[in-house]
């Protein structure tokens, strides 16, 4: 489904170039649930953003369903079947939560129909009640509420590949337990879809089929959680 080939990403002026990703290669198969973890600055979020087209790679290729999407923009990638939940979702004055979910569910195959019940169920799935549907996605929402709405908007896309960039950030422990359940259900509902989560949280990592550990812009280790988690714990990661 997703192939990343020799992907590099650097920032800064030529004399002080900082390499974030260095010749990275990885594959994500259909139906796979992958957690990408690693220390801060290891390139996890950059990899996610490059996949969605939010950043442009310095070199390398990104292939999605056998199509080279390296030069495609965000919209084109979204239409091809990639969804993305932002680590720090933006505010929108005058746009309601329901507006956002409707945009998410428009123009592609989705499990959401234009019915109140579907939106109500979806918002309840992420731990918010239906009154939130009419609220604006503005700064009256807390960071945790905004994050849950962001997760709901990514789920509403029902995409072939969904990437969640640190979904646990800004969410309290109680809500985080619920969030783990959300991802379990999301996966069960569409087992053919691939799910990639950028996370530090062991409870999420344990749910994955595979963990990829990034360090200094390269893959340090990967494998099943039972194999990789002990190494991570040993390393104090």
């Amino acid at each position: 489904m997703l192939q990343v080939k020799n992907l590099s990403f650097s920032v800064g002026p030529a004399r002080k170039r900082s390499t974030i990703l260095n010749n990275l290669n990885l594959n994500i198969k259909p139906g796979e649930f992958v957690v990408i973890t690693g220390p801060n600055g290891s390139g996890k979020s950059t990899l996610a953003k490059l996949t969605m087209g939010l950043e442009k790679a310095t070199s390398g290729q990104i292939i999605f369903n056998n199509q080279d999407i390296t030069d495609k923009n965000i919209t084109e990638r979204a239409k091809l079947g990639i969804a993305f939940a932002f680590q720090q979702p933006p505010h929108f004055k005058g746009v309601t939560v329901k507006d956002l979910l409707q945009i998410s569910a428009t123009g592609h195959e989705t499990f959401l129909e234009d019915s109140e019940t579907d939106y109500k169920k979806l918002i309840e799935t992420v731990g918010l009640d239906e009154s939130y549907l009419e609220r604006e996605v503005n700064n009256t929402l807390s960071g945790g509420e905004l994050k849950r709405i962001e997760i709901a908007s990514a789920i509403a896309r029902n995409a072939q590949l969904t990437i969640f960039d640190e979904p646990e950030a800004g969410i309290d422990i109680w809500s985080f337990e619920k969030l783990v359940q959300v991802f379990k259900k999301f996966r069960d509902k569409a087992p053919e879809r691939a799910l990639v989560i950028i996370s530090h949280q062991q409870r999420l990592i344990k749910q994955a089929d595979r963990i990829i550990v990034l360090e200094n812009g390269q893959i340090a280790s990967e494998g099943h959680p039972d194999d990789v988690l002990p190494q991570l714990q040993e390393a104090g990661s």
């Binding site: 965000i74 979204a78 933006p90 505010h91």
Partner: peptide, 16 residues
């Protein structure tokens, strides 16, 4: 318009 707002809506399939 903040680029983050555009990025978010484009990630939902809207053109710029």
């Amino acid at each position: 318009i903040a680029s983050e707002q555009l990025d978010k809506l484009m990630s939902l399939g809207l053109t710029q």
